[in-house]
């Protein structure tokens, strides 16, 4: 058994890989080793994974219905029956937080799916073609960067109307510009390289060069940035929910729950403490994980 494991290790860590997939798997293995040295980053990853699990199995984990009210049971303190107490209409806060994890994942997932591709397309096209295309696209990017993110998101939500889908659109609109900047910077360093010139000489069209050869190389810095942005996205979404512009009641969004608990801070501390802690822990996890990922994927950066 031990021998087998050692063989695997030699195969993974070999200096002379026999195939490109062996080298690839080996690199991933080294990355994982590197990453697992950073205990805080592993903790972050563990929290994120449990968040995903909790979201998937929410109805089985949560002991109560997240939206059903029970006025006879309102404002109950923490107990064995209600781990995190109950809120102003008698809903179990623990169950609501469990179900709220779905909303959190929904928001960050959709924002990443919308904003990252927009950013990478704008950035690579801008960087590859240069000239007037670059100027125009970067001017547009600058305009969106010139707005403070939350304020612009607020303006869009005001126009689109409150609601979680609109909040996602608004956050996506404000999130893509940094990705475009990063993708452009990467493209500028890649586009003059020999292998690009070689494909060009073989007659590849720009679409193929950008999509097939430039975009994959922009991926690692983009993934780092998106991961690091996740915390900010969670905070913005929670902020919109807190202002009453994100997810609408009775959906168990953590920011909106905190906002609803405001009126009860004098005697019922758990109403704001619990959902707020959930936001904090999850965004902290993404920050820790993102930092760890950056150290692994971006060795150029100085290791502080």
């Amino acid at each position: 058994m031990l021998l087998l494991r050692n063989q695997w290790k030699t195969w993974l860590l070999t200096d002379t890989p026999q195939s490109s997939s062996q080298a690839y798997v080996g690199r991933i293995y080294i990355g994982i080793l590197e990453f697992s040295k950073n205990h805080l980053a592993v903790l972050g990853l563990a929290i994120i994974l449990s968040l995903i699990l909790v979201a998937i199995f929410a109805p089985w984990i949560a002991p109560y219905d997240p939206v059903e009210t029970n006025l006879a049971n309102r404002l109950q303190p923490l107990s064995g029956k209600h781990f995190f107490g109950t809120d102003e209409v008698g809903r179990d806060i623990f169950s609501r937080i469990i179900h709220g994890s779905r909303l959190t994942l929904y928001v960050i997932g959709l924002v990443a799916i919308i904003a990252a591709p927009v950013g990478i397309i704008v950035g690579t096209v801008s960087g590859y073609f240069g000239g007037i295309v670059d100027t125009v696209l970067m001017r547009i990017t600058d305009i969106f960067l010139a707005f403070p993110k939350l304020i612009l998101a607020l303006a869009f939500v005001a126009a689109l109307g409150p609601g979680i889908e609109n909040a996602i659109i608004a956050i996506s609109i404000t999130s893509w510009p940094p990705y475009a900047r990063i993708a452009r910077a990467e493209t500028l360093t890649i586009r003059g390289r020999d292998f690009i010139n070689a494909i060009k000489l073989q007659g590849a069209n720009p679409l193929r060069i950008i999509a097939g050869h430039i975009m994959p190389l922009c991926m690692s810095s983009l993934i780092i940035r998106v991961t690091l942005d996740m915390a900010g996205i969670i905070l913005t979404a929670a902020g919109l929910g807190f202002l009453g512009l994100g997810a609408q009641p009775p959906s168990p969004e953590w920011g909106a729950m905190t906002s609803a608990g405001r009126a009860f801070i004098l005697d019922h501390w758990w109403l704001i403490t619990m959902p707020g802690s959930a936001i904090f822990i999850v965004s902290l996890a993404f920050n820790l994980f993102g930092d760890g990922l950056r150290e692994v994927l971006d060795p150029k950066r100085e290791q502080a």
């Binding site: 929670a238 902020g239 905190t258 801070i265 704001i272 936001i279 965004s283």
Partner: peptide, 9 residues
């Protein structure tokens, strides 16, 4: 990582 509105509350 801390939501500003929560820290304030």
């Amino acid at each position: 990582s801390l939501p500003i509105f929560w820290l304030g509350l």
